[in-house]
């Protein structure tokens, strides 16, 4: 076992973990943050996306130790019913959510894009979401939602 420290959604944690555990396991099993999803467990689908030190990563490929001393944002840290993030609002308004299993990862990839680049081009939006698979929507409305969120942010 080993001890790691990290800040998740603005809260500091000191955790005892097995070094084999993935960040995904830490978030879901130790912290009960179940909004981070596992769709493939091998980096292909992006359902497990979180923001680690300002960058999106697949938490299924990050070991707990790699997250030591880092700052992490999961979907639970992005917005809530009282004050949804513009991306979350736009996803609902545009109809970019169907089954919703890809949604947390999509929202985090989109949020991180807008944090860095508030006025992205269509191509930049496409690239930013290219690591997140959705089997339901056909992507069109998701791209439109991110665009809408960017416009609202202007």
């Amino acid at each position: 076992m080993m001890v790691i420290e990290c800040i998740v959604n603005d809260k500091k944690y000191v955790l005892e973990v097995d070094p084999q555990e993935r960040l995904l396991d830490v978030l879901r099993n130790h912290l009960g943050l179940l909004g981070t999803k596992e769709g493939c467990g091998e980096g292909e689908c992006g359902a497990c996306t979180v923001i680690l030190d300002g960058k999106t990563v697949n938490s299924c490929l990050v070991l707990a130790g790699q997250a030591h001393n880092s700052v992490i944002t999961t979907i639970e840290g992005v917005g809530n019913r009282q004050s949804p993030h513009p991306v979350q609002k736009a996803f609902v308004e545009v109809g970019a959510v169907q089954c919703g299993f890809c949604t947390p990862g999509m929202v985090l990839s989109a949020k991180n894009l807008l944090d860095k680049n508030p006025h992205p081009s269509d191509e930049e939006i496409g690239v930013a979401l290219s690591g997140n698979l959705c089997r339901c929507t056909g992507y069109d409305k998701i791209l439109r939602a991110v665009k809408l969120a960017a416009e609202e942010g202007k």
């Binding site: 980096g43 992006g46 996306t49 960058k55 999106t56 697949n58 990839s109 690239v127 690591g131």
Partner: peptide
Amino acid sequence: MGSPQIRNQ
């Protein structure tokens, strides 16, 4: 290479 998430890691 890969995807944005993969490239970040």
